[in-house]
Simulated scan of single mutants.
Amino acid sequence: MSRVNEADRFDEEHLLPIALEVFGSVPFPVTTEYVPIKKASRSKTTTLARRLYFDSYYSFVMTGFFEGLHYGHYPRRCDICKKYFLMTSAARQKYCTGYAPFKLKGKAITCRKYAARINRKELAAGNPVIRIYKNRCSVLRMERKRGTVTEEFAATALDLAKERMQQAKEDTEYANSQYESDMSREKLYTEVDKQLK
């Protein structure tokens, strides 16, 4: 899946066409049923669960891959160990959390830590969630300095921007779909106006 780096953005919209081109339209039959199960072994209440049955191992692997893609777990090749791993956030991670093929002072070290030691650390600039947040905060501080917004307005807007950034870090789907729009000047300021009324 080395072609994954061709995607403009790491989201379902941009990765799905590449995945379909790589894997083609080979069918992988799956039977689905919905069953009630207990939330925990001692629980008295039940919840609805989806049970999948696969005709082949290939069907199992392909379903897992496309389900992962749908939920924001995108494949990426680690720049250090060259193994594939699944990204679980909107950041364009370059390194996996597995062990590097090199040792540091005779001890095993993770790829991420090894990259940091050789000055190839992942920077916030590579994380679109952080970059958008920092840009918005910078503009807000500048407007507060110029007096185009009040201190109270700027403080409220900065708090709201931080909330949205934290939500995007925890929720990949939100980060890939709504976050950038919610952090736009127009939407953020409209929401702050509502809060301050």
Rank of each mutant, 00 (worst) to 15 (best):
R141D: 15
L15N: 03
R117C: 07
Y84K: 04
N127P: 05
A154T: 06
G106H: 03
G126I: 07
E180M: 09
R42H: 12
M87V: 15
T47R: 09
D8Q: 04
G64V: 03
K134M: 12
A91M: 09
P36W: 08
T45S: 14
Q93I: 07
L20S: 10
L123R: 14
L15H: 04
M142W: 12
F66H: 02
A157F: 05
T32N: 05
M1N: 06
Y179I: 01
G126M: 10
V192Q: 04
V4A: 10
Q178F: 14
K113A: 13
S177I: 14
K169W: 06
K94Y: 08
E13S: 11
Q178G: 02
Q167R: 12
V192N: 00
C78Y: 03
M142F: 11
F23C: 11
E170Y: 05
A91Q: 10
R50Y: 07
D55E: 09
P75I: 00
G68N: 14
A116R: 01
C137S: 04
A155E: 15
L69K: 03
P29D: 08
F102N: 01
G72Q: 06
Y174H: 04
K134C: 07
R9F: 14
E163T: 02
R117F: 08
G147C: 03
S41D: 13
R146M: 00
C111D: 04
G106I: 00
R50W: 06
Y99T: 09
A157E: 07
D182Y: 03
P27L: 07
G126R: 02
V4W: 13
T148M: 01
K83D: 14
S56W: 07
A175Q: 02
K169M: 12
C137P: 03
L158E: 00
N135F: 09
G106R: 07
L20E: 15
Q167L: 12
L140Y: 00
R120C: 13
K103A: 08
R51F: 08
G64D: 09
A49Y: 09
D193M: 01
R3W: 13
T32Q: 12
R51S: 09
A155P: 01
L140N: 00
S56D: 00
T88H: 10
E21K: 05
K121A: 14
F85D: 01
V129I: 15
